[in-house]
């Protein structure tokens, strides 16, 4: 399959170790103002695996995901408690700058959001620009090709690198956003319902991309699509929030077990589409 031909080796000039790492959340709780929306979340996201977060809307999946790369704190009233580690290092208490954390833990949003003022190629390398990393012209061109290949987009846009990012179709834009996130060589990639705005064909392409990426990157994905969770993930966590109460994880484990043999009746109800 052509999507797998990511043979060009590429090394971003960087001092930190970019080997794949695990993430772990311990006793995480989140607030918006005084409203507690997430309580007592414990979750391991092992290296090289895809962890899917499932659960009905409003139970705090996005909130949890955003704590993993410190996007949560951008909301003025937001606060949190607990510990989140990236490769054993506490991302909130170590001296790691927040920008470095976010570079290591990349994010793809629900709605494709390529930078409209940049071309396709510029979008891919925008992360380097934003980090102030200088690269030579040939390095840059290699990086563009390498990342677009990994995102499974190279063949479609090879001739359109100078077009504005928004000239692509929705599915292509989303893969462009994935390529953009890959360009800064993250160790973890967070995806918040990356396919919910896309058609089935584009969705399949992105799932293929996820499959190839997981060899090198730890992936956490939020999805409302049960089949998707089963197709792409090895581990799964089911979130739930009772009315007026903070969300929490009902149970988590291998995707296989959560879907075929869950402990909690609410989980089996949800994964079989009986509520939510």
């Amino acid at each position: 399959m052509t999507l797998l031909d990511n043979t060009t080796e590429f090394v971003v000039p960087s001092t930190i170790d970019r080997s794949r790492v695990e993430m772990e959340a311990r006793n995480v709780a989140c607030w918006f103002g005084d409203n507690k929306v997430l309580a007592d979340v414990n979750l391991q996201m092992p290296a090289g695996e895809v962890t899917a977060l499932i659960g009905p809307s409003g139970c705090g999946k996005s909130t949890f995901l955003r704590t993993l790369n410190r996007m949560h704190e951008l909301v003025p009233s937001a606060s949190l408690a607990g510990t989140i580690t990236l490769g054993g290092e506490d991302i909130y208490r170590s001296r790691l700058p927040v920008t470095e954390t976010r570079r290591r833990v990349g994010m793809v949003f629900q709605k494709p959001n390529p930078f409209p003022a940049m071309t396709v190629a510029e979008n891919v390398v925008s992360g380097l620009k934003l980090a102030g990393v200088k690269v030579t012209r040939s390095e840059r061109q290699d990086l563009v090709e390498h990342c677009l290949r990994r995102a499974g987009l190279w063949q479609e846009v090879e001739k359109r690198l100078g077009d504005p990012g928004r000239a692509l179709s929705g599915g292509q834009q989303q893969r462009l956003c994935i390529a953009r996130a890959l360009a800064v060589e993250p160790q973890v990639l967070l995806m918040d319902e990356p396919c919910s705005a896309l058609d089935p064909t584009s969705t399949r392409r992105i799932e293929e991309t996820i499959a190839t990426l997981q060899e090198t990157i730890t992936i956490v994905i939020v999805t409302h699509n049960m089949q998707q969770a089963q197709r792409v993930s090895q581990r799964c966590a089911f979130f739930l929030a009772a009315y007026g109460e903070p969300g929490h994880i009902v149970e988590s484990g291998t995707t296989e077990r959560i879907f075929n043999n869950p402990d909690d009746p609410r989980t089996s109800d949800y994964v079989q589409g009986r509520f939510g």
Binding site: T99, R103, F109, A117, S126, L130, A131, A181
Partner: peptide, 22 residues
């Protein structure tokens, strides 16, 4: 759109570069 600022920050862009580049 606020989403562009978020995208920039999520790529590890600082405040200044988010404003000046995005």
């Amino acid at each position: 759109p606020g989403g562009l600022r978020e995208a920039s920050l999520a790529l590890g862009g600082g405040d200044w570069r988010t404003t000046s580049r995005v």
